[in-house]
Nucleic acid binder design. Structure first.
Lengths: 141, 141
DNA sequence: ATGATACTTGACTATTTTGGTCAGGTTTAT
DNA sequence: ATAAACCTGACCAAAATAGTCAAGTATCAT
């Protein structure tokens, strides 16, 4: 089981962005430098975040990105969704017609993955971007 | 984020095994046929399960495997542990000396992965093999 | 207007991980 | 002795990941 770094980077970048939200657009270049994430990779990630309306872009000099919603209203689920980070339960889920193992029945662990998925999504649904910003920067205020 | 099928197969095989526990050793060949898992792959998996003392092997003709503990005492955490299925939080965890991103500080999502890991482990700690057997076969009793 | 900054898009690729297979054993019941 | 079943380690192809690279386009500041 594994969490990919695309999802992790997306969250890191958004926490960074959320911190400055409301003042100026934040350029990917700045985020790249502060968070040590390749600029090219960030561009890929933000392209997806924009399509899902989590951020807005501001073009031109002094441009960058701003949050499209309040940090409190952006849940981690939204972020992971946007960058295609899914809880894949090993092709043991979607095929409604066929079973998981090529047979016609569900495999013995089918319900288990269902439950786990729900469990994890609950966790991500509760956490907002705002929570993370507070957790990381409250000491410095 | 992803769940590998090695862990899934391990659980499937053990549920199958647990079902017949106490009567005779169950051969991997039988499990292979019933669960549609390659025999060679099962051998790899059971080798690990044996080393972690989750199962015992019985050699020779009519041999096979039996559970080494009661099904109620085998938690899913134990199984995933045994087959090296870990909740990897993207190298963002172990390096205590260096930070997660090459810098000396923890990355902005460090605590998040910690929490998630705990959350998931809680789930797997609660579920025992016995629970799964009951869930899958209670209707037929 | 024009250059610099910054976003935008899409193709491409090396590395790693996964999900196995294959071969060649050893052990033990019958 | 022989067949069933465990045991071990090496090997490999396909897929996914984690990016890089190239070639733009849009907009602001001056």
């Amino acid at each position: 089981m594994r969490l990919t770094s695309k999802g992790r980077y997306a969250v890191m970048a958004l926490v960074d962005l959320a911190r400055f939200d409301g003042i100026n657009p934040v350029s990917l270049r700045d985020i790249s430098l502060r968070q040590s994430i390749s600029l090219d990779y960030l561009e890929q990630i933000f392209s997806k975040l924009r399509k899902k309306e989590i951020v807005q872009s501001v073009r031109g000099t002094q441009g960058g990105y701003i949050l499209n919603r309040k940090a409190k209203e952006i849940k981690l689920t939204n972020i992971f969704d946007a960058v295609d980070e899914k809880v894949k339960t090993v092709q043991c889920k979607k095929e409604s017609k066929k079973g998981c193992n090529g047979k016609s029945t569900k495999c013995l662990t089918h319900n288990l993955w269902d439950e786990l998925e729900t469990h994890i999504n609950n966790f991500f649904d509760k956490k907002s971007l705002d929570d993370l910003v507070k957790e990381n920067f409250e000491r410095r205020l």
